[in-house]
């Protein structure tokens, strides 16, 4: 059952008011413009033991993603394809509002939005991940770990997941004549085969204004958010409206355009921090 959140921090009315007043003038409490991201730093291969990983700092938000490759069984309806699994954990050290326990609806939603953005456009070339077609395939586990919640977890997680997949190494695998699969993770045989790159841009709505990359304080004031996943070739690879408010049709068009524009910047950051290394 999904319940209106009640454990949200109380933001002083004065602060809410000043966020509102400033946004109406086109600026934010931290001095950014409405279409401006916070400073983004990506540290690829942050966890060398994982086949792929990346730490993303988006302002004070910190997200770590690890990719593990394991041998498993394919889904019956896709016997010749590898398997992608995305999971997110909002661990309690990341925020006073996070509780220990199984992922809550927010963590599940975030993981599923990222899963769809990767899956639908086929970011990973899963057909190249069959080891013994119909029996053994690579399973790609993408585990998202939020380490510090300072707003816009979805964009930071999506960026970290994409960066981690871009640096994921394929472990060596051998199939014996008896059909036994042997994996040697100490030897790498190239990179995870990718078809596309996808980033997610969340656009927040406050009154009639739209802004990107909201901080946690701004999130408390926003009416609603629209997350738009943008591929490197400028297509929309997924969308999710979040929050209890609404958008007019016109606002949705504007938000999507804003996301498509801003998505280009995130793609160039990926290129610079990850692809060129």
């Amino acid at each position: 059952m999904s319940t209106t959140p009640s454990n949200i921090p109380i933001l002083p009315k004065l602060k809410k008011e000043s966020i509102r007043t400033l946004v109406a003038k086109g600026i934010r409490i931290d001095g950014r413009k409405l279409n401006e991201y916070r400073k983004i730093v990506i540290e690829p291969n942050y966890i060398p033991k994982a086949e792929g990983s990346a730490l993303v700092r988006m302002g004070d938000t910190v997200v770590l993603v690890g990719v593990k490759m394991e041998v498993g069984q394919p889904f019956p309806d896709t016997p010749n394809e590898g398997v992608l699994m995305v999971n997110a954990e909002f661990v309690p050290l990341a925020s006073p509002t996070f509780e220990p326990g199984p992922p809550d609806e927010n963590a599940i939603e975030l993981a599923r939005v990222i899963d769809r953005s990767l899956r639908e456009i086929r970011v990973i070339d899963l057909e190249k991940l069959a080891i013994i077609p119909g029996e053994k395939v690579w399973m790609v586990w993408v585990d998202i770990y939020v380490l510090n919640h300072a707003g816009n977890l979805l964009d930071a997680s999506s960026l970290a997941a994409m960066a981690a997949l871009m640096v994921t190494k394929m472990p060596k695998v051998e199939v014996s004549e008896q059909g036994e699969v042997k994996v040697d993770k100490s030897v790498h045989v190239g990179s995870l085969p990718l078809n596309h790159r996808v980033v997610t841009v969340t656009v927040g709505k406050l009154d009639e204004y739209l802004l990107v990359d909201p901080t946690d304080e701004e999130e408390l004031v926003l009416d609603a958010k629209l997350a738009v996943s943008v591929s490197e070739d400028g297509r929309i690879a997924g969308m999710q409206k979040m929050g209890p408010g609404d958008f007019t049709v016109d606002e949705v068009y504007k938000a999507v355009n804003l996301a498509l524009e801003t998505g280009k910047e995130l793609h160039s950051i990926l290129e610079e921090y990850v692809a060129k290394r």
């Binding site: 769809r116 639908e120 456009i121 629209l226 591929s231 297509r235 929309i236 690879a237 997924g238 969308m239 999710q240 409206k241 609404d246 958008f247 007019t248 049709v249 949705v252």
Partner: peptide
């Protein structure tokens, strides 16, 4: 006003 919008696909 739009209150739900999801896109599952491209």
């Amino acid at each position: 006003k739009i209150t739900l919008l999801q896109l599952n696909g491209v």
